[in-house]
Write a protein that binds this DNA or RNA. Structure first.
Lengths: 230, 230
DNA sequence: CGGCACGTTGAAGGATCTCAAGCTGAGTGG
DNA sequence: CCACTCAGCTTGAGATCCTTCAACGTGCCG
């Protein structure tokens, strides 16, 4: 497995743990229960805004979502991408701390925040799972910091692609990248032109294969070597 | 509020509030109880290592701690600084995700993790509290991402100093910076020379006053103007 | 067809990193 | 009291990388 390979080289483990998530295959169309509501959101639509009263939190069933914080100078920071199984917007703050936007058509399960404490009390398993998912989100956030602290643009992108591979690789080895280059740039703290150039170089060096813009296959060893060399 | 819930239920004598960000002046030397142990750590010593089995979590009573993740190329990323009132290492992961090092002589309160899990199951209020604290940590992590995404070194430093001001300003308006320039650099993802130059410029522009290395006073308006202008 | 969003590529400029040297203050030992 | 050491901080200069601005290409859609 990747972790062992990387750890043996004394490298920071790759950001396998993304935001709060469960294995994709555990995602089911849950039966309707009183405390949850299923809904669909079209690509480009906003699920909630930064600063909105946090009435609900969500779980992604299908599609992809980006979490965006606006920054003073007009730039934006994408804090995380959420894929099926991930939780969105769970915090105890009264207001949402970021804007959640669908980047693909999504189906979501919505939970009422005020029911949460009741559920925690009445359902120990739910409480433990929620705690674990939130802690995982924190772990993911720390991993992202490590990504951002990498000075080199190529490092950041390689790191990102390895993480996407752990997280969203299909059975046939292909990785779907639902986000645009601009999204990736805002996620990694780079200019989108820089991301584009880094992609081109990775393709030239055969570290990735990219027949279409949103579908790639990576050469793990080559990418990890690039991290080592840095 | 949740804090009060936990205090009244499990902690007869208040070890301050159980908040990830408690006001320093509420920190007291709590009496010894079965599930907590007070200990002291000297500056430079390690509290726990990244990858260690997570047997305990801690609360800072006095001093300052840095949370460090090692990165492949020999660099390191400081994920957070912890000051009195902060909690350290309270995720549900089996292993600590970062190394915690004292940057000043510290007194800490140590809690056994397995007691925590028991309490989650048996006591809903505790579970809610822990959930809230973890969510707060996540919020702090997102805020840090925004700091890191600021392209300019001056922006990052200004942001950092404003945050330290919110967090650690004394009654007389002075801010203690227990961490070195190198620590700040690793926190902000910059070279320490760059941090030093940024400090110098802020001093020249009178945005900060710095009679000694570890003690500054900031001009909030000037710093915020710098962020806007960027 | 035109408009538009997204992506790629080039060129120039600027910010940061790296390497290197010197400075400061604290602690130590003579 | 002084010289010495060492860690942390500052400053300089050059090289490197990234950003910015600009142009162009592509695919989609009305």
């Amino acid at each position: 497995m990747l972790q062992t390979a990387i750890q043996s080289r004394h490298i920071q483990a790759p950001p396998a743990a993304w935001s709060a998530r469960t294995a994709p295959n555990t995602v089911k169309t849950a039966p309707a229960r009183s405390f949850e509501t299923q809904l669909t959101v079209k690509a480009g639509e906003t699920i909630f805004h930064e600063g909105d009263e946090a009435l609900y939190f969500y779980k992604v069933l299908s599609g992809a979502v980006r979490l965006v914080k606006a920054v003073a100078d007009g730039h934006r920071q994408i804090c995380d991408f959420n894929l099926p199984g991930d939780l969105i917007g769970f915090s105890n703050a009264a207001e949402h701390e970021f804007t959640a936007e669908a980047i693909q058509d999504c189906t979501l399960m919505r939970y009422r925040r005020k029911d949460t404490n009741h559920l925690i009390r009445s359902d120990a398993a739910f409480a433990c799972e929620l705690q674990a998912l939130t802690a995982k989100g924190l772990s993911s956030a720390y991993a992202h910091m490590v990504r951002l602290c990498h000075r080199s643009a190529h490092d950041r992108l390689a790191w990102f692609l390895l993480a996407m591979s752990d997280r969203a690789e299909n059975d046939d080895g292909w990785i779907d990248l639902p986000m645009t280059r601009v999204d990736i740039a805002d996620y990694l703290g780079l200019a989108h032109e820089t991301v584009s150039r880094a992609f081109t170089q990775l393709k030239k060096s055969s570290a990735i294969v990219e027949p279409t813009l949103n579908r790639i296959k990576i050469d793990r060893v080559a990418l990890e070597d690039k991290l080592d060399a840095a």
